[in-house]
Computed example of a mutant assay.
Amino acid sequence: MQQTSPEDTGVTAGSEPSLRAALEAILLIVDEPVAEVTLAQVLERPSRKIAEALAGLSAEYTEAGRGFDLREVAGGWRLYTRAECAALVERFVRDGQQARLTQAALETLAVVAYRQPVSRARVAAVRGVNSDGVMRTLTARGLVEEAGTDPESQAVLYRTSSYFLERLGLRSLEELPALAPFLPDDVETLEEQQK
């Protein structure tokens, strides 16, 4: 572990907090990932110093085996509980409540994620069933959000939210797994037969 002096890591009486202490204080209160640029502006420090400090804190938490982790997701940094503690945290937070997504919600979310921006009608066409209720549920949970309107049909378009990326632990949509390995080899033949 890197040696640091008390003024680099803590808060002393009557003085400004260190960069690491300031970052920790901010990261404890954010409810969504915060970008390095935003932290640099708020703390009036160079982005490079912010990036170094965040990487150092993340490594320190991992090395110390803390119950939390500092991760870069969805274009920013946020504290998360460690995967090893997930069952305990879930039991504490949910207290027996079930909040899983239904199969219909998972299917709809997948269509939105891979075809965005997409209208409700297009989601229904892909799934083969009306998805209006499921779309309302996904929007209410913050996983899907409006992304404007289609210029031709004036239909509302939807996309996944930054909360979706955060929940999946992704930095961007490019990290979604490719669909090609899961499709049948003769997908063109199947599409022609359906017409």
Rank of each mutant, 00 (worst) to 15 (best):
Q97Y: 13
T81K: 03
W77M: 02
A83K: 12
R100F: 07
F68M: 06
R94G: 07
T62C: 05
R100K: 15
F68R: 04
G75W: 01
A87V: 14
R78W: 02
A87P: 04
E90W: 06
G96H: 02
W77P: 02
R78N: 05
T62V: 09
R78Q: 10
Q103R: 14
G96K: 02
T102K: 00
E63P: 03
L70T: 03
R91D: 14
Y61M: 05
V93M: 12
Y80W: 08
F68L: 05
S58R: 01
Y80P: 00
R100L: 14
E60H: 09
T102P: 01
T81G: 15
A104I: 08
L79I: 14
T81L: 10
T62L: 11
G56M: 05
D69V: 09
A105M: 02
A55T: 14
A55F: 10
G67D: 10
R82T: 15
G67V: 09
L79E: 08
Q103W: 10
G96V: 02
A64P: 06
A59S: 10
L57K: 02
A74E: 03
R71N: 07
F92E: 13
A59H: 08
E84N: 10
D69Y: 03
A64S: 15
R71V: 10
A64F: 13
R71Y: 05
L79M: 12
L106T: 12
D95Q: 13
R82F: 06
A83T: 12
G96P: 03
R78H: 00
A87Y: 08
G76H: 03
G75Y: 00
Y80V: 06
L88N: 14
Y61P: 05
G65R: 01
L57R: 04
A55Y: 02
E72D: 00
E90R: 14
A64W: 11
R82E: 11
A105K: 04
E84A: 13
Y61R: 04
L106A: 13
G65P: 07
G65V: 06
E60F: 04
R100C: 09
G96N: 02
E90C: 11
E63L: 09
E72H: 09
A55S: 12
S58E: 03
F92A: 13
A104G: 09
E72L: 01
G67W: 06
Q98T: 15
F68I: 10
R66H: 09
R91G: 12
V93W: 13
V93C: 11
Y61W: 08
G75A: 03
Q97N: 14
T102C: 00
W77E: 03
V89H: 04
S58C: 07
E90M: 13
V89R: 01
A104Y: 00
C85K: 11
S58K: 01
V93I: 11
Q103C: 12
E84L: 11
Y61S: 00
Q103G: 12
R94K: 14
R71E: 10
R100E: 15
A83F: 12
T62Y: 07
V93D: 11
T81R: 08
A83G: 11
G56V: 06
A59G: 03
Q97I: 14
R82Y: 04
L79W: 03
D95L: 11
R91E: 15
C85N: 14
L101S: 05
V89E: 07
E60Y: 08
G75S: 06
T62A: 10
Y80A: 03
A104S: 14
F68Y: 11
A83H: 11
T62I: 09
A55N: 11
Y61D: 01
